[in-house]
């Protein structure tokens, strides 16, 4: 049994699921608002056309609510929903009686969540681009002169992806252990709130859900409370590995599987 087959099977399960809809709606939500704002204040479009850092500003504006609040919330919800697919449909027992190693099941399911996260980042990025271009086309105003800073976008998207990994891993761990959907949701939102409160603390990067916000601070050049030399991306990766190892051990050693 290969990982690919298991992944294909897991991916099929997300079809028409709430998690899949959440990714699509969530990724276009902020760009749609930005798009509407630019339509309403269309007199500013000409100024935007010649703005030297138009794309960086638009990117930062879109990421502001996303990084601090919506992305962590979306990740908490969608990760919990993926595991919940099995609990709600009573399918863990069927899945665990297929000829697959438990490690393959664990990794395939996690890979689906990561793929959905990538899907979100790609769609969100497309949404940002559309909200940047389309209002100019609709009002016949010249397109932004600044060429799209692909390297900057890719780098920042990669950072946001890395910074989300601890949230995904911890939510995955909790979701696999608890049948009740409210447990991962409640714990996730609780840690998220604690992380938001801790942002003014010098050691806020110790909190596993702060790293997206910290990356947003970096984009907007906001001076946070943490020492600028701290590599919070490395902290995010460290937490990710730690949570994944714990999650795997807990999953493998479950006495009852479904």
């Amino acid at each position: 049994m290969t990982f690919i087959h298991s992944f294909q099977s897991e991916w099929l399960k997300t079809r028409r699921s709430l998690a899949a809809w959440l990714v699509i709606i969530g990724s276009f939500f902020i760009p749609a608002i930005m798009f509407a704002v630019r339509l309403v204040y269309h007199e500013k479009l000409e100024g935007d056309s010649i703005a030297p850092a138009f794309w960086e500003t638009l990117f930062g504006n879109c990421w502001q609510p996303m990084a601090v609040l919506l992305l962590p919330m979306g990740v908490i919800l969608s990760t919990s929903l993926i595991a919940q697919l099995e609990y709600r449909n009573n399918t863990w027992k069927q899945l665990h009686t297929t000829p697959q190693y438990f490690s393959i099941i664990f990794l395939a399911k996690f890979a689906v969540i990561l793929t959905m996260m990538l899907q979100f980042l790609v769609l969100f990025f497309i949404g940002i681009l559309l909200s940047g271009f389309v209002p100019h086309l609709l009002f016949g105003v010249a397109l932004p002169q600044e060429s799209i800073p692909w390297g900057y976008f890719m780098k920042q998207n990669a950072y946001f992806f890395i910074d989300c990994l601890p949230i995904i891993a911890l939510q995955y761990l909790i979701s696999l252990q608890f049948k009740n959907f409210l447990v991962p949701l409640g714990v996730g939102l609780g840690i998220m709130l604690a992380s938001l409160i801790s942002l003014e603390w010098k050691y806020c990067y110790w909190m596993p859900y702060t790293h997206c916000s910290l990356n947003f601070y970096a984009i907007k050049h906001i001076k946070g409370a943490i020492d600028p030399s701290v590599n919070y991306h490395a902290w995010a990766l460290g937490y990710f590995v730690l949570f994944m190892v714990i999650s795997f051990i807990l999953y493998i050693t479950q006495k009852q599987k479904g």
């Binding site: 049994m1 099929l12 079809r15 399918t91 069927q94 297929t98 000829p99």
Partner: peptide, 24 residues
């Protein structure tokens, strides 16, 4: 085992496809 294990948001054929991918 006990109650049926089916993905409610999928059709009958899609449910079978989920397991067909695994059993190949």
């Amino acid at each position: 085992i006990e109650s049926p294990s089916l993905y409610g948001q999928l059709t009958a054929a899609e449910n079978l496809q989920v397991w067909q991918k695994i059993y190949q």
